[in-house]
């Protein structure tokens, strides 16, 4: 039966498109957190770690951990409200299709951590995403 094989790049492109569609301006990939260099609300898509299990010589089961910092500048003095707003927007985009267009077997949000004022006047949340897909060797 037909199985879908993909690459990290193909999945990341889907994630980037979903976040841009949701309204994130400064979507960038594999970059450090220098939020004042980017438009906001913005986010980065960072490749954290992969675990690769070889099922067959040319069939690999990949579990891919992705870290996505999302950020916004708070201009109204309601940092928590602002932060909650971008978290909800990002989660809605990331959870809309766990298969990312059929490329992945599963995609789950593992954790959301917030900065609690450390980057004020910016507010930052880091969303950790776990992807599971099949890749070719």
């Amino acid at each position: 039966m037909a199985l879908t094989y993909t690459t990290p790049e193909a999945v990341f492109a889907k994630i980037q498109l979903a976040l841009e569609t949701a309204g994130f301006q400064g979507v960038d990939r594999q970059k450090g957190l220098k939020i004042d260099n980017y438009a906001y609300p913005g986010c980065f898509i960072n490749d954290v770690m992969q675990t690769r299990k070889t099922l067959l010589r040319n069939v690999i089961d990949v579990t891919h951990f992705v870290s996505i910092p999302v950020f916004e500048k708070d201009t109204a003095g309601t940092m928590h409200t602002t932060l909650n707003g971008i978290i909800q927007t990002a989660l809605a985009a990331l959870k809309a299709d766990p298969t990312w267009g059929g490329l992945c077997m599963d995609g789950t949000i593992e954790r959301v951590t917030t900065d609690e004022g450390f980057y004020a006047p910016y507010c930052v949340a880091i969303i950790q995403l776990k992807l599971n897909y099949l890749a070719r060797n």
């Binding site: 070889t54 099922l55 067959l56 010589r57 040319n58 069939v59």
Partner: peptide, 10 residues
């Protein structure tokens, strides 16, 4: 060891 076989071997 299964990793010595390709998908076409299944």
């Amino acid at each position: 060891e299964l990793s010595t076989y390709d998908d076409t071997d299944t």
